[in-house]
Computed example of a mutant assay.
Amino acid sequence: MQQVKGVVTRAKGEPVTIETINIPDPGPGEAVVDIQACGVCHTDLHYRQGGISDDFPFLLGHEAAGVVESVGEGVTSVAPGDFVILNWRAVCGECRACERGEPWYCFNTHNAQQKMTLEDGTELEAALGIGAFADKTLVAAGQCTKVDPSARPAAVGLLGCGITAGLGAAINTGNVGRGKSVAVIGVGGVGMAAVAGSALAGASRIIAVDIDDEKLGWAKNLGATHTVNSKKEDAVEAIQALTEGNGADVVIDAVGRPETWKQAFYARDLAGTVVLVGVPTPEMKAPEMPLLDFFSRGGALKSSWYGDCLPSRDFPMLVDLYQQGRLDLDAFVTEEIGLDEIEAAFDRMHSGKVLRSVVVL
């Protein structure tokens, strides 16, 4: 066992604190990773606010890259010294989704069996099974994906959650391809990645929708061909006007609220696709709509789990695209901060002035 410093939330809504964390030696199938960088994701704030579960205290942080320090018995996929991106859906290889050749839908993803603890022995719940706002963390070895070690940790670590979720929502779930028209509602980190993914896939028209003109400007830099400020004009009418009155082939809701999902539904073309990648809160209900509208418009209504990504397949590919200059991950890194600045980073997240604050260790 070893002791490190980590960022913990002890109770709902309370400011985070830096605590001494006990890290067990890795057991069978586990790895200890020396964290180099970890993005501040909105999900971490959800944990602090009690929006994920009530299993406090939590060790926060999950969008991370680092170097494997040690591995437990039976681990062959990674070795000490490997530069890895962490993921929160280590596939089991045995469930019905994995057996039918769709491991990105794995229904039995796993985490480390042992618990990290506070100095007094109190067990910690690691955010999304990772807990990477710490000098080191313990994870299942399957949560580690080996990538090019020359890549910038602060940039590629973001592939561990938000960027892959957005890119995958466009490319994997929405099947965006050459010549398609795409609208993305909400261009925070995930929505911005959906814009970048649509551009990477060759979409001909990419419409970014938000209520913040600064974010819409960032979206244009990442590939949006048109922008709509839905505070100033009706989003559905604007999207239709920009698509010859038809609506977009694919509309991605990166907000996850009933009203934005309804906008996405009516802003798509006939036989178009709606992708929900923004995460609703438990009390939200689907909007009441005529059932005939669902039938008469055809197409597909999809939810996107983690961008339907397979880390072992997608992370190395996306890092290669970044290294080639074809995917600007650096554009997502607004600032680099220390462990003691996370509470302030949450405040800046609320203001909408950052895409990602990244903790660099």
Rank of each mutant, 00 (worst) to 15 (best):
262 K>S: 09
253 D>Q: 03
199 A>W: 05
216 L>V: 10
297 R>L: 13
293 D>N: 14
186 G>A: 02
267 A>I: 06
239 I>V: 15
190 V>Q: 00
214 E>V: 13
177 G>P: 11
187 V>H: 00
216 L>Y: 07
236 V>Y: 01
302 K>H: 13
294 F>R: 00
228 V>Y: 06
305 W>E: 06
296 S>F: 14
201 A>T: 12
207 I>H: 02
233 E>S: 07
227 T>F: 10
214 E>I: 10
303 S>T: 14
234 D>A: 05
277 V>P: 07
197 G>R: 00
228 V>F: 07
306 Y>M: 14
277 V>D: 01
199 A>Y: 01
253 D>G: 07
250 V>R: 00
248 A>I: 13
241 A>L: 05
206 I>D: 03
255 V>G: 01
223 G>W: 03
199 A>D: 01
251 V>T: 10
298 G>V: 05
281 T>R: 02
188 G>D: 04
241 A>I: 09
192 M>W: 02
207 I>G: 02
225 T>G: 07
212 D>T: 04
245 G>Y: 06
280 P>D: 02
285 K>T: 15
206 I>L: 06
203 A>K: 04
235 A>C: 08
302 K>P: 11
299 G>P: 08
188 G>P: 10
230 S>H: 08
211 I>V: 15
197 G>L: 05
306 Y>P: 09
302 K>Y: 12
200 L>T: 11
304 S>P: 13
196 A>E: 06
235 A>F: 10
299 G>R: 00
256 G>T: 09
275 V>I: 13
266 Y>L: 04
192 M>C: 08
247 G>L: 08
291 L>N: 06
233 E>D: 06
220 K>S: 12
201 A>N: 07
299 G>S: 02
187 V>F: 03
191 G>V: 14
268 R>S: 11
239 I>A: 02
263 Q>T: 15
197 G>M: 04
265 F>L: 12
197 G>P: 07
224 A>G: 09
290 P>E: 08
205 R>H: 08
191 G>E: 08
225 T>M: 06
221 N>R: 09
252 I>P: 02
189 G>V: 10
184 V>Q: 00
240 Q>S: 14
215 K>Q: 07
284 M>V: 07
218 W>Q: 04
228 V>S: 04
300 A>Q: 09
215 K>E: 02
306 Y>E: 14
232 K>Q: 15
297 R>P: 06
294 F>K: 00
206 I>H: 02
284 M>P: 06
250 V>H: 00
277 V>I: 15
235 A>K: 00
205 R>S: 12
258 P>K: 01
296 S>D: 03
274 V>N: 08
180 K>C: 15
305 W>R: 08
240 Q>D: 09
263 Q>M: 10
263 Q>V: 12
293 D>M: 10
230 S>N: 09
257 R>T: 14
199 A>P: 00
267 A>P: 11
228 V>T: 05
215 K>F: 10
244 E>V: 14
222 L>N: 00
295 F>I: 13
191 G>I: 13
229 N>D: 11
291 L>W: 07
286 A>C: 04
184 V>E: 01
201 A>M: 09
256 G>C: 10
240 Q>I: 12
189 G>Y: 01
301 L>F: 15
288 E>Q: 13
297 R>K: 12
186 G>Y: 03
295 F>Q: 01
226 H>G: 11
204 S>A: 15
273 T>E: 05
240 Q>C: 14
184 V>D: 02
213 D>C: 04
272 G>D: 06
276 L>Y: 01
258 P>T: 07
226 H>I: 15
287 P>M: 01
